[in-house]
Amino acid sequence: MSFIDFNFYPLTAVLFVIIVLIQFLLKKKERLSNTVSKIILLCFSYLVMGLYDWRFCLCMTGG
């Protein structure tokens, strides 16, 4: 899954909303908000990576 896969966009929009919410809710706790944002970004990065590799697996096995 990458920029030209259109499933990418709704997922990224959800990520965006989550991070905006975190930054808004933890406005006064900057360090915590930064750490939580980074954790979510990392999880999303692994999700994107996993989905990309999984799709590639399907292509290889003809699925």
Partner: peptide, 15 residues
């Protein structure tokens, strides 16, 4: 380790 992991796999530059 969180920073290292994010530095290596940050999604916009992944592919």
């Amino acid at each position: 380790i969180l920073d290292i992991a994010l530095f290596l796999s940050f999604f916009p530059k992944q592919v």
